[in-house]
């Protein structure tokens, strides 16, 4: 009986999805099935799924954690006015983060490929060395880029450090570039031609129907439209606000509780990071200044990580046990 249902699942898995959203839905179901909390995208502009506090902050401390979510991501410099077959300034990542990293994470990952229709007996799946580092988050880890028939379909990382803190235990992070993966699975040549919903639906929509216009608009905005003086000002504001929020005494006089504003401060870090990306796309940051800006964002990320480690969610379990004992 158990054997049967496993086979059915496998059979269902190997059928080819027919739309972008079907791939997302299958991933959501798969990881929900494996016990992950299926979260929603973070409601701010980020460059990658890693920036979601569910990954950055929750990979700190000893509390077990398992989450999966889609994260819309923005990379202003990658804008190509919707013309490039696989480059977008706004795209989707699928992110899985599990702490501590389970011993069978590779098998779980391969199961997810099967779930979206990749027959592991027919394709060539490879784990190719690729160490991950985020200078803005003060984070690094070791892992691979996963190749399917020579194409990179995911990033697989064991976090070693985030915000300057050692990750103990270690989180396992999986990042799927959804558009690229979906185009490969469905054999689509240009991202704008990819079916977004069921192509047999009464109103079939392609990726281009939804995003071609916005890619044009944002490309123009990123490269020529955004007011750089304002962006510089906002960067300074976000930086100052982050610091100010963290400078509050932990004791909240109104409630009498200890409330450290780690998440609101981290929101400002995310803002600063995105503003930097926009300034970069506008071409107003020189090579020498670049490093300095990245360093400023990293300093914020580190402070937020420090603050989060003082909170209930980010504290080490042993520390809690000691205080209660």
């Amino acid at each position: 009986m158990a054997q049967n249902s496993a086979n059915q699942a496998a059979d269902q898995g190997t059928t080819t999805p027919r739309s972008f959203q079907e791939i997302i839905l299958r991933l959501q179901n798969y990881w929900a099935d494996k016990g992950c909390a299926v979260l929603q995208p973070y409601d701010m502009e980020v460059g990658a799924g890693t920036f979601h506090p569910a990954t950055t902050l929750r990979s700190l401390g000893t509390k077990p954690w398992a989450a999966a979510y889609v994260q819309p991501s923005r990379r202003p410099t990658d804008g190509r006015y919707g013309e490039n077959p696989n480059r977008l300034q706004h795209y989707y990542q699928y992110q899985v983060i599990i702490k501590p990293s389970p011993a069978n994470l590779q098998e779980l990952y391969l199961g997810s490929l099967k779930a979206i229709g990749i027959d592991l007996g027919l394709h060539d799946i490879r784990f190719v060395e690729d160490d991950w580092e985020s200078p803005t988050l003060g984070a690094w880890g070791l892992g691979w880029e996963v190749w399917c028939d020579g194409m990179e379909v995911s990033q697989f990382t064991y976090f070693q450090q985030v915000g300057g803190h050692d990750c103990k235990p270690v989180s396992g992070e999986l990042t799927y570039g959804l558009e690229r993966l979906a185009m490969y699975v469905m054999n689509v040549g240009h991202v704008m031609d990819m079916p977004f919903n069921n192509p047999d639906a009464p109103i079939p929509l392609t990726y281009g129907d939804i995003f071609r216009q916005t890619e044009e608009e944002y490309s123009r905005h990123n490269f020529d439209g955004a007011t750089t003086e304002m962006l510089f000002r906002h960067f300074e504001d976000a930086e100052a606000e982050c610091q100010r929020l963290l400078d509050f005494p932990p004791q909240d006089p109104k409630t009498g509780k200890t409330i450290i504003m780690a998440h609101p401060a981290y929101d400002q870090t995310i803002k600063a990071s995105h503003l930097f990306n926009l300034l970069d796309a506008r071409g107003v940051i020189s090579v020498t200044e670049r490093q300095a800006y990245i360093g400023r964002v990293r300093a914020l990320a580190k402070k937020c990580a420090d603050a989060f480690r003082q909170t209930e969610a980010g504290r080490d379990a042993e520390m809690t046990a000691e205080t209660t004992a």
Binding site: P100, S101, P102, A103, D131, G141, L142, Y158, Q160, C167, K168, P169, V170, G172
Partner: peptide, 8 residues
């Protein structure tokens, strides 16, 4: 040349 921890 580079090593890592994993899990707990």
């Amino acid at each position: 040349p580079k090593s890592m921890r994993w899990g707990t």
